[in-house]
């Protein structure tokens, strides 16, 4: 399931948030290895907490957002952003093509149409 949602394109899209994660991770490693101001139980705990909490939250939010967006792509027609409710709008290219439509019907039955549903059932 997860593999199908997080295909190569989605992972590529998500790299944008991997960069800040990497920067935070870089500083975590740096502060551990170099410990420029020494280690103090309370101050160091807060120091790493201040890095870890945003890191974890960003990773979690990126995961769920990616799943919601990619899940919606797999389970319903994709329009250009802002165009879905335009009269006579046509879905964007390939996503509703035949190879996927069979599978799409199945996932539709399980997931319902919205991505948050999709996110819930995992």
């Amino acid at each position: 399931m997860a593999n199908k949602i997080f295909d190569r394109d989605t992972l590529l899209d998500l790299t944008v948030n991997v960069v800040p994660l990497f920067i935070i991770g870089f500083f975590v490693v740096g502060f551990v290895v170099l410990a420029p101001f020494g280690i103090d139980p309370l101050a160091s705990a807060i120091q790493f907490g201040l890095l870890a909490v945003p890191f974890v939250l960003l990773a979690v939010l990126t995961y769920f957002a990616g799943r919601a967006v990619a899940g919606a792509e797999h389970s319903s027609d994709v329009y250009l952003p802002g165009q879905a409710s335009v009269r006579g709008a046509e879905p964007l290219e390939e996503f509703d093509d035949t190879p996927e439509s069979l599978e799409r019907d199945q996932t539709n039955a399980v997931e319902g149409e919205t991505a948050d549903d999709a996110a819930d059932d995992h």
Binding site: V16, I23, I24, P36, F37, I46
Partner: peptide, 19 residues
């Protein structure tokens, strides 16, 4: 403030420049 905390805030501040 404690230089350790300051350093952490600097790290996240630099990271937020990326998006």
């Amino acid at each position: 403030m404690d230089p350790r905390l300051r350093a952490s805030f600097m790290a996240v501040s630099l990271a937020i420049a990326i998006p």
